[in-house]
């Protein structure tokens, strides 16, 4: 589908993307996670052909995307700052423009989505609240039916009912019209069930790429008396630790072998799972 090879993007002295190699398989929903400033927005803009790589390549089905309408007509990126039009533009006019630009755009579906979000074609972009602007971005993005559709924090400022509509529509339309989605988000626990795989970007590099369900089994929290816990985790990959009086909890990365689990039980140590969000925080440097 889309591949990057040795992709670098620099802003002056700052390196936003650092020799990134990525290969997205068609027909999947990917989640893009990363801390603020990790490079998510730059990556999405570069994949969409909005930004020229400083070095390296971005290819969509073998073709460069930058300044290549044949590739970019098959890519839709909804940016968090909107970028859909000016304040005085009416939603209906923006959708008509989107349809003119993109063969895959489905105006009937756009109308149904507008309705679900309680928006109308007559409203102007400038009259919308932050959450409504996000909802309209979702309308444009989903109705584009672009083979590669990307949302940069699609749900920014949206209320819980709106986010639920987004999840329902995304899944329903993805099943009916399979395509590739790449969604960046900070709402990890809420959004991660929608993803098949997550990509974690950290300091411009790809830190991890894994099936989201596998990620749920990657971390183990070991809890017990400090000295016993320290002993037990020696030689394991420790991501973080916290203490409460004489009790210590250490988060380790990687599945524990059965003998290790047995040893933990014998010493009265508790082993618990680690939520994806906690794992993300630990893997990207803790707090």
């Amino acid at each position: 589908m889309i591949t990057t090879t040795d992709l670098c993007v620099r802003y002056g002295e700052t390196t936003a993307l650092d020799a990134l190699d990525l290969d997205l398989t068609p027909g999947r929903i990917y989640g893009l996670l990363g801390r603020n400033g990790a490079g998510k927005t730059t990556l999405l803009a570069t994949l969409a052909g909005f930004r020229k790589p400083s070095a390296g390549r971005v290819l969509l089905d073998g073709e460069p995307v930058f300044e290549n309408p044949r590739a970019t007509s098959r890519i839709c990126l909804i940016r968090e700052d909107g970028g859909l039009g000016d304040g005085i533009d009416r939603l209906g006019d923006i959708l008509d423009m989107a349809r003119a630009l993109r063969k895959t755009h489905d105006q009937g579906y756009a109308a149904a989505l507008l309705d679900r979000f309680g928006l109308s074609r007559r409203q102007t972009l400038g009259s919308l609240s932050r959450g409504q602007r996000s909802a309209f971005g979702i309308v444009v993005g989903l109705a584009s039916r672009a083979p590669l559709t990307m949302f940069d924090e699609a749900h920014l400022g949206m209320d819980a009912p709106g986010r639920r509509i987004f999840a329902d529509e995304l899944l329903a339309d993805y099943v009916a019209h399979p395509r590739t989605f790449l969604l960046s988000t900070h709402l990890i626990e809420e959004q991660s069930p929608l993803f098949e795989q997550v990509l974690i970007l950290h300091r411009g590099r790809l830190l991890l790429r894994e099936d989201v369900d596998d990620l749920r089994t990657r971390g183990v929290a070991v809890t017990g008396p400090a000295a016993l816990v320290d002993d037990f985790v020696t030689g394991l990959t420790v991501l973080g630790e916290r203490s409460l009086g004489p009790t210590k909890e250490v988060t380790v990365y990687g599945a524990l072998a059965e003998p290790d689990r047995e040893a933990a039980r014998l010493h009265g140590l508790q082993l618990g799972p680690v939520a994806v969000q906690d794992l993300f925080i630990h893997l990207t440097g803790g707090v």
């Binding site: 929903i29 639920r164 999840a167 329902d168 899944l171 329903a172 993805y174 099943v175 069930p193 929608l194 993803f195 098949e196 989201v212």
Partner: peptide, 8 residues
Amino acid sequence: AAYYRINP
């Protein structure tokens, strides 16, 4: 997938 809002 639709009922539980999870990836198919």
